[in-house]
């Protein structure tokens, strides 16, 4: 079979376009949405902790977390509907169980350490979220583990050195960072 130079060029361009479209379709189908969703929740939640009274702030956080949980479940169910993997079913169940265990550990750690103030409570949650994040990175995509470690380092910096503006710091760097990472993942391909 012989083809011209132009035909070969067209065929390679068609392949590259299809590879790009497929990767974009996969990435758009969900994973980045978790980052953007929780980035927005952190940004709104921490801003509300910075500027509103404690009682009001805790109610807002509760509402945000419930909304975040429901939307995350919907995204999870819709994730990559058109693509299935023989390896992913078992892994998916183990990942879900891992996050459930992590949530239980977090609640127990806070209960043992109680009473804690708002900033300490935020740091407990950040510890467990970043442990989960880094673990997922080590398991699924090594590069993303560094982002989890960076978030942990920035949180520690804010807690010990910028205590007065800790919530503002977490809203902008934690929430904003997650939104930026989500947008980056979405557009990477």
């Amino acid at each position: 079979m012989d083809i011209s130079h132009d035909e070969a060029e067209e065929a390679l361009a068609a392949i590259q376009a299809m590879v790009k479209k497929t990767r974009r379709a996969i990435s758009r189908s969900g994973a980045y949405a978790f980052l953007i969703l929780w980035g927005v929740i952190w940004m709104v939640g921490f801003l509300n902790s910075q500027f509103l009274p404690n009682q009001t702030a805790s109610y807002v956080w509760m509402g945000l977390d419930i909304a975040g949980g429901i939307i995350s479940a919907i995204i999870g169910i819709r994730l990559n509907r058109g693509i299935r993997s023989s390896a992913s079913t078992t892994t998916g169940k183990r990942i879900a169980f891992f996050w459930l265990l992590l949530f239980v550990y977090c609640v127990m750690a806070v209960a043992v350490a109680w009473p804690v103030d708002g900033k300490q409570l935020a740091m407990f949650i950040i510890f467990f979220v970043t442990i989960g994040w880094v673990s997922m990175g080590l398991l699924l995509s090594f590069a993303s583990a560094w982002w989890g470690l960076a978030l942990l380092a920035l949180s520690m910096l804010g807690y010990f050195l910028l205590n007065d503006i800790f919530y503002l710091w977490m809203a902008i760097l934690g929430g904003g960072g997650m939104i930026a990472l989500g947008v980056y993942v979405r557009n990477r391909w």
């Binding site: 497929t22 509907r81 693509i83 299935r84 992913s88």
Partner: peptide, 23 residues
């Protein structure tokens, strides 16, 4: 051309993945 694009999609997926007909 269509078969070339089909194969481009399939080799882009992970080796354990399979894609739904409608997708």
């Amino acid at each position: 051309p269509v078969r070339l694009r089909i194969m481009a999609v399939l080799v882009t997926l992970e080796p354990t993945d399979e894609v739904d007909f409608t997708y």
